[in-house]
Design a protein around this nucleic acid. Sequence first.
DNA 1: TCTGGGGTCCTAGGACCC
DNA 2: TCTGGGGTCCTAGGACCC
Length: 426
Amino acid sequence: MSSTQYTKKIALIDCNSFYVSCERLFNPKIRKKPVVVLSNNDGCIISRSNEAKTLGIKMGEPYFKARNIIVKNNVQVFSSNYSLYGDISRRVMRTLKRFNSEIEVYSIDEAFLDLSNFSDDEVEDVGKEVRSVVLQWTGIPTSIGIAKTKTLSKIANHIAKKEKSGVVSLIGIEDIDSILEKVKIEDVWGVGRQLTKFYIKNDIYNAKQLKNISNAWIKKSSSVLSSRTAMELRGIPCIDLEIQDSKRKSCVVSRSFGKKVEIFQELKESVTNYCLNASEKIRSESLIAKSITVFLKTSPFQNRGIYYSNSKTIDFPIATDNSIEIVKAAINGLKDIFKRGYKYQKVGVILSGLSNLENKNNLFSSSKDEKIKSLMRSIDSTNCRYGRSALSLASGGINKKWNMRRKHSSKIDTADFRCLPTIRTS
DNA sequence: TCTGGGGTCCTAGGACCC
DNA sequence: TCTGGGGTCCTAGGACCC
């Protein structure tokens, strides 16, 4: 059944320097200037404009280490504003869906789009069309790579990033080896730090070499994932497009502290808040959790004092979405793993074994359950209206000395009327 | 002084059963 | 005296992704 007519054609659309591009949307003055966006707590650099990349600022670099370059070159710095980025992301994805509803939203700034319906000759022009419509409708610049498999479209995208047109198609190209030869092994999708080390030890330095190595060898010495990657480099699709958005299986809320924390009471406050946050999230998706894990850790970078990290998982008797129950379990877990005398950098909670609320076994439900349900509902609607944590639990505390640092926030919120820009007409 | 946060999947190994 | 082996299920930890 396979003729060129039916060859899979997968486009990977990737927003360029996404967080930076979002900040630029509302701040035209920084369009041509070097810009970086910082992670939570203003810890690391997680998005860089091309100008900032040229200055040698590296991805994931701690902010304080890059500060010299930043000050010297007047680099514009922003704390991350995820509600803004999430909103812009939804606009981009909505725009992409107009070309084909067969789309996999892969991350906040990336999507795979099935273009198999177009002929080999058309597909690159379609890519250019997608790119220009997204730019026009959302203001976000993108790069687009098109190929027969997801892994190859990642590579095409990687190349497109450096092209002026922003679009690269590998469809219909005979001699793909000469292209893959220039792709470093660590730049292949699915090859991380450990695999890079392993491949280099075995004299595999680029994508071409990985493509041409025997499958049996890879499977034997690594895992099925690695052999899948190699197959995909050969143009054989092994990783399907995931069109329908599946329900998540776990939910994590964790933060580093703005300032190291030693006191149990303060850890308890933050764990309470993270639990409220997490349970609100799963309720909004109609999920219930089978268990909760609490974890805490000291900084792995500062070795004054010894590193300590621990976690505790607690199973609920019956899967739940009840904030009060969830908080109670988490604090009990925290008591078990807390040790006096350490300066904690981070705590967090993980709700896992998530399943649909409708599937809940109602054998033990009672009128008390109904009361709790309606309490949760009113907490959620109040917080939705007046901002998260308008309603909280007493153990959540009110001082929040441990709160995050966010010194460089642009304070843009596309969901807040007070942040609407003013347009003057003359 | 200051080093993010949130996910998924695979594998090895233990527990248990017959 | 002789002390198996195969199957399944679960979990923790690791590796990867953005």
